[in-house]
Structures are given as C-alpha cells and as structure tokens.
C-alpha cells in the first residue's frame, strides 16, 4: 500500500517549530511519509526540496506574517514550472480572512487554530489521493 508523501517547512526567519513538529508527529502516526524541510525556507528552496522528495503535498507551518510575502511567490513558481503539487498552510496566526485570501491564491488547504488532526489528515490524504493511486498502480506486478 502506497502512502501519501508530504513535506513540511517553515518560511523565512520564522523560527517557531511547535506547530510543524506537532503536525509531523500525527501525520506520521497516520502512516504518511513526512519529510521536514526545516527552517529558513524561501519559495525557491522549499519547492526544490519538495521536488527532490517527490512529495504529493507541500505543507507550510507559520507563526509569523511572512506567509503573506512567500505564498504568492510560491504559488506562482509552482504554476510557472507546471508543477501541480497542492499546497496547505497551517498556523494559529491565520484568520478567517487569511483563509479566504489564501484559497483565492490557490492554496488547497488552510488550517488555522482549532483545526483537528483528523481533519488535517483527511484533507491531506484527499489531496494526495490521485498520485498515491498512480503510485500504487505502478507498483502492481504486471
């Protein structure tokens, strides 16, 4: 059985890791393959790491307002490169209005404070489903 693959990263000089570490734990417990892009990412480096890890979903954890700067750039770079990797963003600093704006940008999942682990796991699984299915089929013996 193939598992969803996700990379989690923190952008810029935001150095709060509580959210990222906590989310990675429950995604791993849900049998996902999780890689950690760590701190100090730019749109460019996060995409690079995501492609290298061949992930199904890119996750960004934020506790500063730097996502306002990085997200439009990240989405644009993904689109320009023809990379259809869904992006999800989580963090307590995200407001209802942020969710609307990020969704308009094309962000596939926005998880503000109060998002439940199950809700996040389900959303990420759904976003990864097509690629996971393709991998499973490719892995079947001929």
């Amino acid at each position: 059985m193939q598992q969803a693959k996700i990379i989690i990263g923190v952008m810029g000089v935001d150095q709060h890791e509580n959210g990222a570490v906590a989310v990675m734990r429950f995604l791993r417990e849900a049998q996902m393959e999780v890689s950690y892009a760590g701190l100090f990412n730019t749109s460019e480096t996060l995409i690079e790491k995501a492609l290298a890890a061949d992930v199904d979903v890119i996750g960004i954890s934020c506790h500063s307002w730097e996502y306002i700067h990085y997200l439009p750039d990240l989405m644009q770079r993904l689109a320009a490169g023809g990379r259809e990797v869904p992006v999800v963003v989580g963090g307590s600093v995200l407001t209802a209005r942020d969710r609307m704006e990020l969704t308009e940008l094309g962000v596939a999942g926005v998880f503000p404070a109060g998002s439940q682990p199950d809700e996040m796991i389900d959303a990420i699984r759904d976003l990864a489903a097509v690629r996971v299915q393709a991998r499973s089929e490719a892995a079947q013996p001929a």
Binding site: G12, V13, D14, Q15, F40, T42, S64, E66, I68, H69
Partner: peptide, 21 residues
C-alpha cells in the same frame, strides 16, 4: 526575528518580516 537572529534588516530574508514581531 532578524534582530533576534543577529541579522540586519537589509538581509534579503529579513525584508518580509522586518519590524513585524
């Protein structure tokens, strides 16, 4: 965050967050 990390505000990584926290 840049000041706490001993970075000047003209560092390219600092610009999106200078003065916000």
């Amino acid at each position: 965050a840049p000041t706490m990390s001993m970075m000047d505000p003209d560092h390219p990584l600092a610009a999106p967050t200078a003065g916000t926290q």
